Simulated scan of single mutants.
Amino acid sequence: MTINRNDPNPPLVLVFAAADPTGGAGIQADIMTLAGMGCHALTVITALTVQDTAGVEDVLAIDADFVAEQARAVLEDMPVQAFKLGVLGSVDNIAVIAEIIADYPHIPVIVDPVVASGRGDELASDAMLETLCELILPQATVITPNTMEARRLAACRAPAHADPEAGTQSDCAAVLMEMGCEYVLITGSHAHTPQVVNTLYGSGGVIRADTWERLGGSYHGSGCTLASAVAAALAHGLDMPQAVYEAQDFTWHSLAHAFRPGMGQHIPNRFFWARPPDETGV
């Protein structure tokens, strides 16, 4: 990705997300990813979590008024090139964030719809998903669900008699775009396939499908990394297809250089580029 070295200020990306004490996921992952791709992160904490590399034990949502105050303070001071949304913490937080981003319709909105942790711990209630679908997705430039998240979100607008598990990936993408998303990037990390296939959908159908080597192990914060990398690439001025490719490439290399500091999942190394290549040249 080409970065404009003539501009003394890096692109600014405002992130709404929860804090992760491990630094593997959440707002810490967003900060490192954005820095690794030449952006500066502005951060609004939506929730505090108790978690380790194995899973999430508890979530404490920040008061919605305080979330709004955090965001308004930086938005009134600095120009923002992109919004990135992760774990939002509560229905009230989702509603207030929807109001904030509505005031800046020219700024792209990248949504990582985190439904659960890698272990399966719930991070979004049905009420939160309904509110996300009603208030946030109509404003989303791109949403980055895995296959499981795409089905669960699509079920929010599916007929009562429908089985969301029976819908194809393209069906889910179509439903999400009917909600108002401009683009949908569905990742294949949860699919039982030899390789990971990530597919970007637009109003005309599939825009691009990229195939990546499936790496062994389990990763803490891979979805946060991908969504923040998309936000960074868009903030640098890339068009959506190229931004999505650059983000996937950054994320894959972060995972390929991941480390395992604890007893649970591996943590992506978002500064892989600062280390000399190993014998494989990865």
Rank of each mutant, 00 (worst) to 15 (best):
F271M: 14
Y201E: 05
G264W: 05
E279Y: 00
A274R: 13
W273F: 10
Q248H: 12
Y201L: 07
H257K: 09
R214T: 07
G204K: 01
H192V: 15
P194N: 05
E213S: 06
V196T: 10
Y245A: 08
P268C: 15
G237V: 02
L226K: 08
A258P: 00
D210F: 00
A232K: 04
I267A: 01
S189P: 14
V206K: 06
A243S: 07
A233M: 15
L255D: 02
P241C: 04
G202V: 02
H190L: 10
G237F: 02
D249N: 13
T193G: 02
P276S: 07
T251N: 12
A227S: 15
G262F: 00
G188E: 04
F271R: 11
T251V: 15
C224P: 06
T199P: 12
G202L: 07
W252M: 11
Q248K: 15
T225N: 13
G237Q: 06
L215T: 01
A247G: 12
F272L: 10
S203A: 15
F259N: 03
G221R: 04
A227Y: 02
F271H: 14
A229Y: 07
Q242Y: 05
A235I: 03
S228A: 07
A209D: 09
A229P: 02
F271Y: 13
L255Y: 09
V206C: 01
E279M: 03
P276I: 00
G221V: 03
P268K: 05
M263E: 14
C224W: 10
A227G: 04
H257N: 13
Q265V: 04
F271T: 06
P276E: 12
H236D: 12
I267E: 01
Y245Q: 06
E213A: 05
